[in-house]
Every structure is written in structure tokens, then in C-alpha cells.
Amino acid sequence: MPENKISVNGLDLYYSEFHALKNVNIDIAPNEITAFIGPSGCGKSTLLKSLNRMNDLVEGCRITGAVTLDGVDIYKDMEITYLRKNVGMVFQKPNPFPMSIYDNIAYGPRTHGIRRKSDLDDIVEESLKKASIWNEVSDRLKRSALGLSGGQQQRLCIARALAVKPEVILMDEPTSALDPISTMKIEELCCEIKDSYTIVIVTHNMQQATRISDKTAFFLHGEIVEFDETEKLFSTPSDKRTEDYITGRFG
């Protein structure tokens, strides 16, 4: 197994004429939580989305450079459905499907060909347990997922992502729409599951990055200014711009 789960090499990304990512290089280690921080519009979400090619949905988006998952180029040598099965995503706003809790979780496995009811039952239970929401929903699996609270919906979405057994989970500001208690639950959850997954999280909240991440990358104007151990980046940043940002001088 290569040392890095994901490697980004010389990635440039354009939205039509706008140069959104400029020569980005970053290596993401397995079984760690990597946080992307930086002001709005700095490219952190854009980079996150290019790791599972969700940027393909954006019209006029072009990239050059390479992103590899376990050494395989995801833009050239990998089926997009295979990529997205292995690199799951949790969105900023909880987006459960308008169907039952059970069907939400079973959607991914069904997509990838699992049909046997007993298999699906096991996956649903296991995923909900991993996302620490089983106790809250086990008696209403057949009810609509839209009846859950925002925090529960987000944990359901995490469970849904876990159900296809990904190796990497991308989280795009997963707690920005949630209250502090739900946020805490999701942070705890991230720390619990990181032994089995590689997690990349975009966050606006620097405290969140210090609480949960192992490494942090600071973005500014489409470039990675600094990427280091979280502890080091926040205590002794080597770049003046990082220091200005984390001490609240801008952003």
C-alpha cells in the first residue's frame, strides 16, 4: 500500500476563465483526518470536490495535473462510479433522499448490486451504528428520513456514505448548518471512524480543525499556503499569511 492515500500533483482547475486552483500539490495520508481551512472562495471546497470528481457536474470546469487514489489516476484510469464508491462525500447541507431511513442507507449498496434483503439489513444496521444514530432511528427505519432533525439527517448522510464501504470520506463543511451539540456528535463520530477511513474535511471553523484533524492545509486564493501537522500549523505557522489568518487578522 502506498504511503499516501490520495496524491494531488500540479493540479490546476479553471471554472471557465476563473483560475480556481493554482498548481496544487498535496498528499493525504491514510487513516488520518486532514482539514482544509481558509477564507471563502479560496478553493478548499473546489479541491475537495475534485477528489471525487464532483466538479465534473460544474459546467465549464477544466483541470490539468493529476489526482491519484492509491497510485491510480482518478481522472484517466478509473471508472467514475468506482471512484465515487471508494471516495464518499458528505455535503454542507444534509441531503437525505425523500425516502425512508432504510432506503436512504440501502441506496448506495443497491446501486452497487447488492439485492439480498438480509445483506441489506446487515449493511443498514452496521452503517447506522457506525454513524452513531442507530439508537435514535432503529425503531423507525421505514419512516421518512425528512422527519429527522438536521443533526440526525447529517449523521444519516454519513451512514449513507459509509454504507458503500468507501476508503475515503470527503466532508464539505458538514457541521456549518448544525447546532453545537450536533456538531460535537459529528466531530466525535469522525474521530471514532478515522481508524478505518481516510477523512478529508473542509471547515470554516478553525477550532474544529484543531479539535479533530491530524493535518491541516491552509488555502488562499486557490493556492495551498501551508500544509502541516495541525498542531504545528496552529502553534508555529511558518508563513506570515497563515499566522494572520489563524490569529484572525483577516478572513
Binding site: G88, N95, A161
Partner: peptide, 10 residues
């Protein structure tokens, strides 16, 4: 909804 589905590999 659409994004959630394709993000799962659909």
C-alpha cells in the same frame, strides 16, 4: 438529491 446519489457512485 441528485448530487447525493451520484456521490454514492450512481
Amino acid at each position: 438529491y441528485y448530487e447525493g446519489a451520484v456521490a454514492l457512485g450512481a
